[in-house]
Each structure stands twice: as C-alpha cells, then as structure tokens.
Design a binder for these strands. Structure first.
Length: 678
DNA sequence: GTAGGGTTAG
C-alpha cells in the first residue's frame, strides 16, 4: 500500500508550523488513537500532530499510520469546514485557498464572514479582500456587494484592491450606477483609481452594450493622462470591438495602440484574428499571423484553433491539412478545442465517419473527448436522421463518465423532433429535472418547436407557461415560434395576446429594429425605415454598422443615392467604422447609378485602409466596368483581384459568357472574352 | 488579494 504522503517529514514540519502558532485548546484532537480504514484525512492529520507531540505508544502504530489510506467517502470536499473552533492561521490559509477557487457553498462563505467579524482586529484588508474575491469566483456578485457595503458600515478598512473587486462585482449587475458611485467613493476615501479600476469599468460598459461610453471613458483617460492603459485595458476594448464585429475599427485601434506606445500581445492578436475569421476573412487573418510572428509574438494553440474554425466555416477543407502541419512544425500540439472544432466541422458536413476518426485519434493522443465532443457528434448523427446512433453516443459518453449537459439534451430533443419522434423527445425533456438539469431557453424553445411542428398547439402553450413559472424567460425566438403556430391554427386572438406579451417582456433591441428597417426598405418605404431609425435612437438603442448598411442599401435600391451617400459619409462622426459589407453596398449603389469613377475611388481608398476589399467588392466593380464597355479597365481590375487571391464569381463569369454570345462581332469584346476565358 | 482570449444546442 502506498504511503499517504511521500515526504512525511515535510508534512510533519508544515503541520507543526500551522499548529505551533496558537493552537485552539478546544480543537485538540479527540481522535482515535488507532487509525482504521474509516479514519478521515483531517483526523489522520490531527492524530499525526498529536503523536508527534506526545510520541507513539507503539512503533507499530506509527508504521500503521503511514500505510493507512484515508477513506475517500469520509473525506470532505473542502479539507475543512469553518467552525467556531477554527484557529486564526487556519482561517488565513482557508481564505487564501478559497480566493483562488471559491467556496463549495455560499453558506460556508457567509459562515467565514461571521467568524472574520469576530476576529476583525486581527485580520487585514487582504483577508477581507480575499473573501470578496472568493465570492466573485463563485459568481455571487450581489452577495459580494452586500458584504462590501457591510465592511464600509462597520468601518472595516478597505483599500483600492477591495474597491476594484467590488466594482468588478457591480459590473456583472445591471445597471452600472453603483459601479460608478464606487468610483466616486474611491476618490472620496482618498485612494486613487488605478488601471484595474478603469479596465474593469470599461469591461463593464462593453459587456452591457454601451460601447460609445466605453470609448469615451478610454479617450478621457488618455486625454487627461489619468492612467497609463495596460495591454489588458487595450485587450478589453479589442474584445468588445471584435465581439460586436467592428473588426475594421479593431484593426485601426491596433495601430493606435502601437502609436501610444503599448505593445500588443498574443491575446490582442488572437481577438482580431478570431474576428477576421468569423467574417470569413481568413487570408487577412493569416496576414496578421505573419505580422505578429515578425514582431516576435508567436501564435499559440488558440491562434491556430481560431484559424482552423475560420477555415472550417468557409469550407476551405484543402487548407486545413497544411495548417495542422504548420502547427506540428511549430511544436504546438492540438488540444481538446482543436479536436472539437474538427469533430464539429465534419459533423456539420455530414461526415460522421470522419468525425469518429478524429475522436479515435484524440483518444490515441491522450486527449479524451469531453461533453462538447460527444454533443457535436450527436448533432452530426441527428442531422443525418440517425437518432438511434445519437442515442448510442449518449450512452457511450455516460459510460465514459461524462455527464451530458443541457446542450447535449437540447441537441437530442431537437434531433428527435426533427425526425418526427416527438414522444421520445418529450420523454427526454421530462427526465431532465431528475438528472439535476434545469432546461434553459433553448431547451424549452426546442421542445415548443417540436410541439408546434406536430400541430400540438395546446401542449406548446402549456410548456410556455411552465417555462414562465419556472423563471426561465422566453425570448424572441420562443415567442415567434408560438405566434407563428397560433397564426397557422387561425387563433388570431391568442396571437394578439402573445404578441402583446412578447412586446412587454422582450424589449426590442438593435436586431429587432434592424429587421424592421430591412422590411420597410424591401417594400420600398425608406421613409418609414428612417422613422424606425429615429424611434430606435429615441428608445436609447444605438444603431450599429449593420443598421446604417441596411439603410444605405435600401436608399440605393430606391434610387436615393444622395441620401445614401450622406449616411455613408457620416459614419466616422457617429463613432462607427463602415465595414467591408457597408463599402460593398455603397459601391453597388454608385455602380448602379453609373458612377463608376466614384466607385473606383472608394475601392482604392479601401485598398489602402484597414478595411480591405473582398471578392464581392471586386466583382461588383468589374461587372460595372463591363456594363460600361470599359474592357481595358476590367482587365486591370481582374488582375488586381487575382493578385489578391480572389476570383471572379458566378455572376461575373455568366456576364462574360453572355457578352460573348451577344456581341461577338465587337473586336474589343472578343479580345476581352478571349483573355478572360483562357 | 484586483482587470483581458478559443470549442457544442433552438
């Protein structure tokens, strides 16, 4: 039997230190003298201490102690639970540990707080801050804030770190008022807000969809030189920009950051690379990889995973092999995320056999599949209509000791519903609670969709109300599903009630307004679309790049180029950067009005900016030059495009073929088409 | 003792 600890002397030593400070007489061990298989680890430790002080009765007892394995069942998860007898050094050690991982239960944290109040004269700011940090780790933000308030009420000293931790908690709760009043509190208490304070506040503003204010705060910091932003501050902003698909602005901001003397790091580049990949600009992302490599910032496994994801979602399968070999050359091993991306990509393409191969490889390489791997595979089988295999995967995963989560079951429920196995789906849904899982919005919505699809409108409505009473708020997708079903069932009055409910509970967001504007534009009613823009603004929703692009498109299609151009020119003054789609929309509008020169001007502006043209940009202008019989210019444009590794699309190619069949008498057309098709 | 990055579902 192996010893409990490999270095008993070390254990004895540390234990001696721990207890020698000031042992609590009440916590003296009443431990059994003879260890048994049921002896718990703390008991064993206590015994060891006791015997170390007093000596063993028999040498055999000492030897037995080193060969006793603690009983796993009687071993508490937390090495010890605080009790009134916990000593001061024990408390300090507990706080340090829990500030890293959080407490197992909220009650434990509250118990410790009570104990700390009793010992407050002997505890430092750091101890109380560690307790707050532990609560943050447990995502118990409102408890952390109440506790912070209590510290203030009881005049227990706090410092800037305590304030920053409290602000961090506030930023997870709506609204941010209390976070900013704490900022004022810092100054009032004579502390100086630091880079942690401001970075946390910026993150808070961004996570609550207030990018303009985040930008304002950052600019103020720079202008008034309040603090020197760190690379973390910049990365927080990059994350915000990239998650809202303001990639062009992120690229500009990267240059600004360097100009302001802050060196980007791997996280900076990974954020932008991810954002470019999500926009399917993988080549541009690869350019950034070479840029960072030149600067001595080497890509890591996360960089490669994002590139891989980008290649998969652009269906660039042929580029995946070379990328994986490049990883090998750089000695970067694929990790769980890498394999999961590959499994998911294969599954989405219907290649479940390849996905299973990937799983075999990962097991062989010592990276065991997790809940995400198996869920993706289940989705793959469901997509192919093979729900039996999906259920088999569920069993495999459970027998491998991996507990399915809400994602896994939602995938299965969806698969079963789509394959007309409603009863099986409902069966699984009903069993969720007994498996300790609370269905979330997507789970409920999936089941509601299943009912609606089978015409079980009443069942769907019952589930909707169950959902509401369980505290899981339906969202726009949920409501729209059931509203469509009520319309299909000609239950117009119920539809009205549902729509009113939806409007009351799901406040319209930027996406809702954009959809509405798009609808009006499609019907040619750009005036109504502009009205929606104003309503949106007066409701405090900030229009995004997409909102204006919809308008530009609508105005162009309705021959209101001047108004469109006006909106395009105002982007910068609104703190927005038009993206490649906005540019393409504007260029299409210009071309449609025959303003080829102006379109080309915009293209050349793009070529020297951070918002590089893509295949759509080139193809749009190329088609316009062909329509204007400017064949030589078209040749130059096509060569430019090909040099950037883009190629002519189906629509351009068919235009050339069309031209050839209609105008083959024209020598310049013939020459162009010959050149194009060779 | 405090701030920043990646994979699965409607």
């Amino acid at each position: 039997m192996p010893p409990i600890v490999s270095t008993p002397s070390l254990l004895l030593h540390s234990h001696f230190l721990l207890f020698s400070t000031k042992p609590n007489p009440n916590s003296q061990p009443k431990a059994p003298f003879i260890p048994s298989p049921s002896t718990t680890h703390p008991e064993l430790k206590q015994l060891l201490y006791h015997k170390f002080k007093l000596g063993f009765d028999k040498l055999d007892d000492a030897l037995l102690l080193f060969s006793t394995k603690p009983n796993p069942d009687s071993q508490p998860k937390a090495p010890f639970i605080p009790s009134p007898s916990t000593t001061y050094p024990e408390l300090k050690q507990l706080l340090y540990r829990k500030s890293k991982v959080g407490f197992n239960k909220l009650d434990d944290a509250l118990l410790v707080f009570d104990q700390m109040l009793g010992l407050k004269s002997r505890l430092s700011v750091v101890d109380f801050t560690q307790l707050l940090t532990a609560l943050v780790r447990m995502e118990e933000y409102s408890v952390a804030i109440s506790m912070f308030r209590e510290l203030r009420v009881l005049s227990i000293p706090v410092n800037i770190v305590t304030f920053n931790t409290a602000i961090h908690s506030c930023c997870h709760l709506n609204p941010l008022d209390y976070a900013f009043s704490l900022l004022a509190g810092i100054i009032k208490s004579g502390w100086v807000p630091d880079v942690f304070t401001y970075t946390t506040l910026i993150k808070g503003l961004l996570s609550q969809d207030r990018p303009l204010e985040a930008g304002d705060l950052f600019n103020k910091l720079i202008t008034y030189q309040e603090i020197q932003p760190s690379v973390v501050t910049y990365n927080t902003i990059f994350d915000g920009l990239c998650k809202t698909s303001n990639t062009s602005m992120a690229l500009k901001f990267l240059r600004k950051m360097e100009k302001l003397g802050c060196r980007p790091d791997i996280i900076t580049y990974n954020s932008i690379i991810d954002s470019l990949c999500k926009e399917r600009r993988v080549d541009h992302a690869l350019d950034l990889v070479s840029e960072m490599t030149h600067k001595g910032i080497l890509p890591d496994v996360i960089t490669y995973n994002r590139l891989l994801q980008g290649l998969c979602s652009s269906s660039r399968w042929e580029d995946i092999g070379p990328l994986l070999s490049e990883m090998g050359v750089r000695k970067i091993s694929p990790d769980l995320h890498t394999y999961n991306i590959l499994v998911d990509a294969h599954c989405k393409e219907g290649r479940t056999i390849d996905a299973e191969d990937v799983i075999a490889i990962m097991i062989q390489k010592g990276v065991p599949p997790d809940v995400i791997t198996y869920s993706a595979l289940m989705d793959g089988f469901c997509l192919r209509g093979n729900t039996d295999r999906a259920l088999e995967v569920l069993n495999t995963m459970m027998s491998n000791g991996i507990a399915p989560n809400c994602y896994s079951y939602t995938i299965l429920i969806d698969g079963l519903c789509k394959n007309r196995k409603l009863d099986e789906a409902r069966n699984i849904f009903d069993k969720l609670a007994s498996r300790g899982l609370q269905p979330n919005v997507k789970t409920y919505t999936t089941m509601i969709q299943g009912f609606c699809q089978e015409g079980l409108f009443e069942e769907a409505k019952i589930l909707l109300s169950e959902m509401e009473t369980s505290g899981c708020l339906p969202n726009d997708v949920t409501y729209n599903t059931i509203i469509r079903a009520s319309l299909l069932n000609k239950r117009y009055e119920e539809a009205v009630v549902l729509i009113e409910n939806m409007r009351a509970r799901v406040p319209p967001d930027v996406v809702t307004y954009n959809t509405l504007m798009d609808g009006f534009c499609l019907r040619g009613n750009t005036d109504r679309a502009l009205e929606v823009l104003n309503t949106m603004r007066s409701n405090g929703i900030v229009p995004n790049c997409y909102s204006y692009t919809i308008l530009i498109d609508g105005l162009c299609k309705n021959r209101k180029l001047d108004e469109a151009r006006n909106i395009f020119d105002k982007f910068a003054s609104r703190g927005l950067q038009p993206d490649v789609i906005t540019h393409n929309t504007m260029i299409r509008g210009l071309c449609q009005e025959g303003l080829l020169e102006e379109a080309k001007l915009l293209l050349s502006e793009m070529e020297t900016s951070d918002c590089l043209p893509n295949d759509v940009t080139y193809n749009t202008i190329i088609r316009a030059s062909l329509l204007n019989k400017r064949y030589e210019e078209a040749v130059v444009l096509i060569e430019n495009m090909r040099a950037r590794k883009f190629s002519e699309d189906a629509s351009t190619t068919s235009m050339v073929l069309d031209l050839l069949s209609k105008e083959e008498q024209d020598p310049s057309v013939l020459a162009f088409c010959k050149w194009f098709l060779q």
